[in-house]
Nucleic acid binder design. Sequence first.
DNA 1: CTTGTCTATGCAACGAGTTGCATAGAAGGA
DNA 2: TCCTTCTATGCAACTCGTTGCATAGACAAG
Lengths: 188, 188
Amino acid sequence: MALDHAILVSLLERPGSGYELARRFERSIGYFWTATHQQIYRVLGRMVTDGLLQVREVEQQGRPDKKEYSVTGPGRAALAAWLHKPIEPESLRHDLAVKIRGAAFDDPAALIDEVERHRQVHRDRLAHYLAGELRDFTGPEAPAPQDAGQELQHVVLRGGIAYERMTIAWLDDVLATLHRLDAAGPGA
Amino acid sequence: MALDHAILVSLLERPGSGYELARRFERSIGYFWTATHQQIYRVLGRMVTDGLLQVREVEQQGRPDKKEYSVTGPGRAALAAWLHKPIEPESLRHDLAVKIRGAAFDDPAALIDEVERHRQVHRDRLAHYLAGELRDFTGPEAPAPQDAGQELQHVVLRGGIAYERMTIAWLDDVLATLHRLDAAGPGA
DNA sequence: CTTGTCTATGCAACGAGTTGCATAGAAGGA
DNA sequence: TCCTTCTATGCAACTCGTTGCATAGACAAG
């Protein structure tokens, strides 16, 4: 149930509505977690029922009213309890790797376009992360590092950057391999 | 439904029982996909019903009999269809990153043990992958590269190795950050 | 001869996550 | 005026994945 905890962290960093959370999950939190708005709304409701969050109706001009969620004492305690409990190291689930091994039973060259498309997506993500790093952490306009939260957000972002760089390099390796197999002759 | 396709690829590489598949998913296939035996048995049953797989009862000595699954023509066709259909690039789901950002609202130093434990797991995985690479691909006993399947398995393994190396380096970065925050003073 | 371990298969219940659909206020453009 | 877009929330149905439990053959150790 890590979505609960991701929501707690995000709301501690800044209270917000379900809609705002959904947008954060497409951005900064999305570096390491994803969720659709439907899932977020459902979990928010359950967490309010469980007393981990509180809601406040906020009237807005120029747009529909919203419900602003924030973390309660018990919510904070639940997060702390989770932080102190060991978790299992992640296991990968990489569809593209399944495809690459599967290409042995089809035409490997047919995968080249797909792999190049994925590489482009990862290039875009890397550029997006680097722009965010410059804006929020390392650029001339960035605030001086003062609190732990900022340092920790930065180190997580560096993880996202490292992941994208590694992935791009690996996809280059994959492409080289596919081209080599293609040159060696289909069916060889 | 990528588990279906992972099973198709694994059974094309070598037919086997549900139990054997489960063990492969803890090993080589587990480099990029995971599944429990319960899930595997359920999916195997459905795939036989759908005509993608066929079963053969195999009597064994010294151990219980097993059901050996292999891929049918329609199964191969289903895999080919999936290979030619674009898939969405992966999104990360990294619990530990959630914890790291969450540490800002608790004691960052309390995370050090947890992060070190994860780093050790990734070191072990890396060692295991490197040993496998030496055994199957780059060592003196390894068979000479001849078919595409071998090359493709190798490039996927290189991806796993790159992922573990990147993760270990990032966790070192995380540890340095946590130690720095701890030295700067808790609550600072 | 009981206990434990490894091989081997499976059900039932639950929780997590996705997909499709539906509603509605506010703004801007055709 | 209608259409689209953005903000904002939510239900219903379904699939995917995990957890707990159960069974059973073969072997080895105590």
